[in-house]
């Protein structure tokens, strides 16, 4: 088991390195750098000015070197200006170049500086992430129990009316991406013209003070899309278990239906959905980006959009590290959890 986790960590690290390098590569392509220079300087810069800006900031070094600097395994770039002053990545304003550290990459805990928000990337990401964490927490609280209940109820008696009603609900919910359900929910519940005005159409204020009124719609929007999928998986798994021979054994042993479901079917039926829920996280991340944009909730997803839209390289890299980390950790949890839920694998 220990070896297994160790190996998984190795793969995770490799994946994270590969992915961040891809992000690094794409964001550092010349047209992107040119755009960055123009947004940082001004839009009427000549080509020569662009080159000198990039030169001064170390953007024109070879890709691998830049990546090494970001990681903190290569001494960071320094540029001596014409006036003799030295500027560089590691030299924060007010610190003399001699005192500044030579390495300042991720390994040193320095995530860089955001060109959009003019702030330290580490700080931005952690505050934004905590906001998104709040959103995700409520999404999970709503989505997982609801989806499991719907799935189990539907799969318990295949083909019954209850099954058909719930299955229709879950199929509709999987067919409605967040940007569609969000639009519909806002129209129905929040629109000042046609809607019921029960909730607010934006969640900006929820960042400081989340209330049912300003937070429910974004949570519901994300939860709905994921819910249908998990519910369908649970249903499929449940129907399969309910037709299994050992359920028949239990039935012919005289076990009551409610006990068959609770004692015999449930544990076996929840093995598959558990994996699904865990692997659902990457998709939830998508939902978060869409919903935070739609409801103007300034969390992690919103930051990602801002960073990507403005080619804020270091912020974007930090965001992708976080995203990749979330994905890989959930994969790991899903594998381990699967082993613990399924006695067949645990012992052998």
């Amino acid at each position: 088991m220990g070896l297994f986790i160790l190996r998984r960590f190795g793969v995770m690290l490799l994946t994270a390195l590969c992915l961040t390098f891809v992000v690094f590569f794409l964001t550092n392509l010349y047209p992107n750098l040119e755009k960055l220079a123009k947004t940082q300087g001004n839009f009427r810069m000549t080509d020569a000015e662009v080159t000198s800006y990039l030169e001064k900031n170390g953007y024109l070094q070879p890709m691998v070197v830049k990546y090494g600097e970001w990681l903190g395994v290569v001494p960071s770039f320094r540029h001596t200006n014409e006036d003799g002053s030295v500027q560089g990545r590691c030299i924060s304003p007010g610190v003399s170049p001699e005192d500044a550290p030579r390495f300042c990459g991720v390994l040193q805990g320095d995530w860089g500086f955001s060109t959009v928000f003019k702030d330290d990337v580490g700080a931005i990401v952690s505050t934004r992430l905590s906001l998104t964490g709040k959103l995700m927490f409520w999404v999970l609280m709503l989505m997982v129990p609801a989806a499991l209940i719907v799935g189990v109820l539907a799969g318990m008696k295949e083909g019954s009316k209850l099954d058909r009603t719930l299955s229709t609900f879950s199929i509709i919910s999987t067919a409605t991406p967040e940007y569609v359900s969000g639009v519909i929910l806002i129209t129905v519940f929040a629109s000042s013209v046609t809607g019921l005005k029960w909730f607010k159409g934006t969640a900006t204020s929820a960042a400081e003070n989340a209330t049912f009124e300003n937070f429910f719609l974004p949570v519901l929007t994300i939860a709905l899309y994921g819910m249908g999928y998990i519910a369908r998986m649970t249903r499929a798994s449940m129907t399969e278990v309910m037709t299994a021979q050992y359920i028949r054994t239990a039935r012919l042993k005289g076990v009551a239906f409610s006990n068959i479901v609770m004692k015999h079917a449930l544990r076996n039926a929840l093995i598959a959905p558990f994996t699904v829920i865990m692997l659902q996280f990457p998709w939830l991340l998508n939902g978060v980006v869409i919903v935070e944009t739609l409801f103007n909730y300034k969390g992690f997803g919103w930051t990602l959009v801002q960073a990507a839209g403005n080619n804020d390289i270091e912020l974007l890299l930090a965001c992708s590290v976080v995203a990749v980390f979330v994905v890989l950790v959930t994969q790991l949890i899903s594998d381990i959890g699967y082993v613990f839920l399924n006695p067949r694998i645990r012992i052998s």
């Binding site: 299994a244 021979q245 050992y246 028949r248 054994t249 239990a250 039935r251 012919l252 042993k253 005289g254 076990v255 009551a256 004692k263 015999h264 544990r267 076996n268 839920l341 399924n342 006695p343 067949r344």
Partner: peptide, 23 residues
């Protein structure tokens, strides 16, 4: 339900499939 298991019991072809794997 009262009769099943108590008065009439059944044994099947696939022993592996007729035992609950998680119990």
């Amino acid at each position: 339900r009262d009769i099943r298991g108590r008065e009439i019991a059944m044994i099947y072809q696939e022993p592996m499939a007729s035992l609950n794997p998680a119990m």
